[in-house]
Amino acid sequence: MSSALRIRGFIAIGLLPALALFVFFVIVPILWSSYYGFFDWKGIGAMKFIGLDNYKEVVQDRLFWHSFKNNLLIVAASVFGQVPIALLLSLVLLKNGWFQKFIRASIFMPMVLSSVVVGIIWGYIYHPQIGILNFLLDSLGLESWKMQWLSDPAVSMYAIMVPIIWLNVGPYLIMFIAALQNIPSEIDDAANIDGARGSRKLFSIKLPMIWDTIKVAVVLCISGSLKAFDLIYVMTGGGPANSTELLASYMYNNTFSIYRFGYGSAVSTMIIIISLVLVAGSQYLMKSKK
């Protein structure tokens, strides 16, 4: 065998299995489902071509847009919750001492838990009768603050945001600490010589120096908001009265609970389009705002 052939053979063996697996399980289903979106189909039996009807129904369904709004609420909770908390903590946890490492490791801990476990634990915390949150309010004499945290549509979405923030501070904290530690020490020395102190140093030097990292964090909040499906499924299932429905749970409930696979496929396609637009758009905005 010639050496050119051997190289080719090796490249093919190295690439093709991985590429085939990836294309078959990630790319093909997406393309396929955008096609199924044109059919009325119960998952078994005949498929009836109905043109754009499914897609029209998605766009006109108020519940779909309500779910989308909930996704945006999670983005907001992440941008205004996780990011500032992580940023504040990173400023005081910058040193690499054992105490700082211990606090960082504790804050990161929830990330390694299964979202099912997180969801069930927080479900118990919020539980109207046995929940420790209402128990705590009772023992503090704050009975009037007690609520049906997860079963009152007016508060359920906000109640869900707390575990989401609790869960996700860790990686942002690590990102910000890495960025702050990357600021060259000469810059800090120069600032000290110029007499810059505390808050002045923070706003004129530290924040501008890690601005790019903060931008990355905001983009992450957007793509991360689409991952909250597990938590919602375990804690509320999208209820009560669809108040905590997310795009992914909307798709799940509209496909597997009522066997509308054509419609579910159309929703899936819409979610992918929306998220690509959101991620691309946010990255574009972040780049142009220099």
Partner: peptide
């Protein structure tokens, strides 16, 4: 192609993957 895969939200593929 691989890069594209990182942009796709994993939960949006539940229905397509189930059908496949």
């Amino acid at each position: 192609t691989f890069m594209l895969g990182m942009l796709i939200p994993i939960h949006s593929t539940l229905v397509p993957l189930f059908i496949l």
